[in-house]
Design a protein around this nucleic acid. Structure first.
Length: 885
RNA sequence: GGGCAGUUAGCUCAGCUGGAAGAGCAUUUCCCUUACAAGGAAGAGGUCGCAGGUUCAAGUCCUGCACUGCCCACCA
């Protein structure tokens, strides 16, 4: 078995990627005799290619699914993509723009053709990249939010909600993006701070010479003002409430009203009320029965205003208005002022509040049910700190604006009856899968469909049920078997946008939550803590990392930094370190495989011959327990750290090094026995790491089992049970390690060449421990480069020797001709100083009555022991100083 | 304005139910020892954000403060 010195990730990955997919390793069918464990992937937009955030999200899910598979669950992870409504349409519109065209030039049908064509060309990019990552997805179940089955689900859901009266059409104040030309829901607006001005404007009273000064950041909307509001308790304005003012520039008369929402301390305490273009004003207007005047149209141009402003953009109008107010003497003053401005989450264009006729979903009942389900513990967040904001959000939820004025998406399945001339009749619109054949009201056979499409998130919200073809058959076996799913893994940025809605829809349509656990992971940031974005140019492409360092390295690095719920910073170095770990695994395996090459009949039933064997088995048992618990609780980072520490620090640095003597032994039985244990531990470690690093684990597993008749790949080999070895080997090992490390330190400090073998004298101080060193003499010799050891009681320090106190011994290294007396003296002095500090610390505690009275017995014993050992050390060092050269 | 995280070695982060400060990277010295120089051995490096409190004992629990980041909110 030839193994290269350096792990070749590329070829090996290619092989296993292909194998898993061709052999359908991760395909799943419903099976009543097995426990299901299902996840759906958060569908990525077809616009995108894999970025580090996707890579993290996918890696974590893959780790979970692979772990659960090894635990014996019937696991299923469903892949899919999202049509991505506005985002995707924007991309294609930009492409068109390069040709100098707009979507209107093509018309709806042609434009949609273009969209589908584009999605056919690029929509699978991200899927290929998920394959590259090694994701254990069931590719037979690949879904797309706009494919047939998913579309049926969307229509079905819409019709049900519509018929139930939960979906309604109405003219309300909505968030409007001029750039995208559509309404948006409340959460699709992002707020950014912008520096602007606060203008103070006089509104003259009609019936006297007085005036009231209002402060505003939106002077241009004054044409839409229908009142001025003050707080009822504001003494300054008490007499003015109910009076009439004349709107500057136009002289329209409006009333001064009072409302509790007005903050006396802001500005002048008097506010212009523009119900058509401000959410708060809109509420105030409703409460006070104030009329609404719309002055900004959906193109962002002024309307219903004096002719000179008509058709101006909002920005232009603002300049003009301010100029004219000033000229006419209405402008009192202008202050600099920072405030937050709504921006479109898809194009960053300015969002305007305006009145618009849209479809809305009544959410009160649904959100209440979602809250109840969460509070009842039917669904839990990991980390749980997300529960509170999630519940809070649901509790304050307003009706969801679900219609979008774009073309790419699920067209709203509402049909309007039209007369012979194509004009809409008064008949009630109907929601149905297909165009109705006849109007139930007027028997007309002509219908037109609503022009709008649904919010992308409407179809996303159905994802956990639509992937199981709920739209086609809600009683199908897969849906019954796999729903509710086990866990959803996602970043915190879409908890409201997506998670909350899936829960609502799940409860509405399936009468059950979509999954029991929500695993929230952090957002990947660059090494300076900045969010990765194309515009900042700090994007690290996961595919580049996979090519450069290997996929396992990428996965390990991501896993290692994925503390639940926290954002993570990641840099090139972490991938390098992970790559080194992968290589370490490779080489340790290589050592074992090379040595077991011509050893026949390696035993599956291992027998530990020495305590070091028991030690590694005990460490393995401990580690396995911890790692499994970590996977179980989504503490992927600690699972990664545990496997790293166990494999490198315990298995490689100590156990393999210790085992070398026996592996090289001429005694075939000794060799065989030792290799059996090495292999046993290696296999167990491979299983434990395989969820994180599946490629290398699979490869080495295959090599180790190359002589088996019916080889099962690691992904399909359930965890072998690891017996907990109950022994004191871990404590004993500490003693052995102490001796070896102290000797090495001594050698290093004395500048003794690592190539030189020297002898050692072991003076027994603690007869309890002497056996450990004596029984493991060969290990001490091997690892500390000692040619011979003489054990004894009352050995005095030879002249020209160095001293170490470790493991119940005084260890002398006679260094005739090699020792640097001054250095040794200094070293011993340092040792005394350290021991003295220890004595100070411990004796202080032991003299403390309160400590003796209240501390635990075991704690006091520990301190006493430390005190004794420090004293002994000083005594020994002083003694030995006498003998120094 | 409210809420949630974070603040530990130069950098990135671990430290569970309170009992002598940990890892990786970087750094210093030595070593190409037949698994691995993508490696090995040994070092150096920390008043655990600040101030109080509880406790025999606090990085760990409590209170307040500061700074950083994120989320929410009707910043006219």
């Amino acid at each position: 078995m030839e193994m290269e010195k350096v792990y070749n990730s590329k070829e090996i990955e290619k092989k296993w990627r292909k194998y898993w997919i061709e052999n359908k390793t991760f395909s799943a069918k419903s099976d009543k005799n097995r426990k299901p464990f299902a996840m759906v992937i958060p569908p990525a937009n077809v616009t995108g290619s894999l970025h580090m955030g996707h890579a993290l999200n996918a890696t974590l899910q893959d780790i979970i699914i692979r772990f659960k598979k090894l635990q014996g669950y019937n696991t299923l992870w469903v892949p899919g993509t999202d049509h991505g409504g506005i985002a995707t349409q924007n991309v294609v519109e930009k492409l068109l723009m390069k040709e100098g065209k707009t979507k209107y030039d093509l018309g709806r049908e042609k434009f949609l053709e273009k969209m589908w064509q584009w999605r056919a060309e690029t929509g699978d990019t991200i899927l290929d990249q998920l394959k590259k990552l090694g994701c254990g997805l069931d590719w037979d179940r690949l879904a797309f939010t706009m494919d047939e089955s998913r579309s049926k689900a969307v229509k079905k859901a819409f019709i049900r909600l519509f018929d139930k009266g939960l979906i309604y059409r109405g003219k309300k104040l909505v968030n409007w993006c001029f750039r995208c030309g559509t309404a948006l829901s409340d959460i699709e607006v992002e707020y950014e701070n912008e520096s602007s001005n606060l203008w103070y404007i006089k509104y003259p009273l009609r019936d006297s010479d007085g005036y009231i000064v209002i402060a505003t950041t939106r002077p241009e909307t004054m044409f839409g003002d229908t009142a001025v509001a003050v707080n009822l308790d504001d003494e300054r304005y008490a007499e003015l409430i109910g009076k009439t003012v004349k709107l500057p520039l136009v002289n329209r008369e409006i009333k001064i009203i009072s409302d509790y929402a007005i903050d006396k301390s802001f500005g002048t305490g008097a506010v212009k009320i523009t119900p058509a273009h401000d959410a708060v004003d809109n509420e105030i207007a409703k409460r006070n029965d104030i009329e609404t005047i719309e002055i900004i149209n959906t193109d962002g141009k002024m309307m219903n205003v004096p002719p000179k402003y008509c058709g101006l953009s909002v920005e232009e109008a603002r300049k003009e208005v301010v100029k004219n107010l000033e000229a006419a003497g209405f402008l009192v003053k202008t202050e600099n002022y920072d405030h937050s401005v709504g921006k479109c989450y898809r194009c960053s264009g300015k969002i305007e509040s305006l009145m618009s006729e849209q479809w809305f979903l009544r959410v009160r009942e649904m959100s209440k049910e979602a809250v109840d389900a969460t509070n009842a513990g039917r669904m839990s967040f990991h980390p749980q700190s997300w529960k509170k904001p999630y519940v809070l959000w649901l509790e304050n939820l307003k009706d969801w604006c679900i219609s979008r004025q774009i073309w790419w998406g699920h067209r709203i399945p509402v049909y309007y009856c039209v007369d012979g001339k194509g004009n809409r009749t008064d008949c009630k619109p109907v929601a149905s899968f297909d165009k109705p054949s006849e109007c139930s009201c007027c028997k007309s056979k002509n219908f037109i469909q609503d022009e709008d499409v649904l919010d992308t998130w409407f179809s996303s919200a159905l994802w956990p049920i639509s992937v199981f073809n709920w739209g086609e058959d809600e009683n199908n076996g897969d849906l019954k078997y796999f729903y509710p799913e086990s866990v959803l893994a996602t970043g915190h940025e879409i908890i409201y946008l997506w998670v909350a809605r899936m829960v609502q829809f799940g409860l509405e349509f399936m009468k059950d939550i979509p999954y029991g656990d929500v695993f929230i992971h952090g957002i990947v940031r660059d090494k300076r803590g900045k969010k990765m974005s194309k515009s900042l140019g700090n994007v690290v492409d996961p595919c580049d990392i996979m090519d450069k360092y290997g996929t396992d390295a990428l996965r390990f690095a991501l896993a290692q930094t994925a503390a639940p719920g926290r954002d993570m910073q990641i840099s090139e170095e972490s991938f390098l370190a992970a790559r080194n770990f992968v290589n370490k695994i490779w080489n340790a395996s290589r050592f074992i495989i090379m040595n077991s090459e011509d050893v026949a009949g390696l035993d599956e039933n291992i027998q530990s011959a020495e305590f070091v064997d028991e030690w590694i088995l005990a460490e393995l048992a401990r580690t396995a327990l911890k790692i499994k618990a970590s996977y179980e609780s989504y503490d992927i980072d600690s699972a990664a750290r545990e496997i790293y520490d166990f494999f490198w620090t315990k298995y490689c640095d100590w156990y393999i090094e210790l085992s070398k003597i026996r592996v090289m032994s001429a005694d075939l039985n000794v060799k065989k026995q030792t290799l059996s244990i090495l292999i046993y531990v290696l296999k167990a470690a491979l299983q434990l790491m395989s969820p994180i690093m599946p490629f290398i684990a699979e490869e080495i597993w295959r090599i180790l089992n190359r002589n088996e008749k019916n080889i099962r790949i690691i992904s399909e080999s359930p965890f072998t049970e690891i017996k907990d070895v109950n022994s004191d080997s871990i404590e004993k090992m500490k003693v052995l390690q102490d001796i070896i490390v102290k000797i090495r330190t001594l050698r290093s400090e004395m500048d003794i060449s690592p190539a030189m073998w020297i002898e050692a004298l072991f003076n027994i101080l603690d007869s309890d421990k002497e056996k450990i060193a004596m029984e493991n003499e060969s290990y001490i010799k091997q690892l500390a480069k000692i040619s011979s050891i003489r054990f004894g009681k009352n050995i005095t320090r030879p002249k020209n020797s160095a001293l170490a106190v470790a493991g119940g011994f005084e260890i002398f290294l006679p260094l005739e001709g090699l020792i640097n007396i001054e250095k040794e003296r200094a070293r011993l002095a340092k040792g005394i100083a350290l021991a003295k500090r220890e004595i100070d610390r411990t004796s202080l505690k032991l003299r403390d009555e309160n400590f003796i009275k209240r501390a635990a017995e075991s704690e006091i014993e520990k301190i006493k022991l430390r005190f004794r050992e420090a004293n002994l050390k000083i005594e020994r060092i002083n003694e030995s100083l006498k003998f120094l050269g």
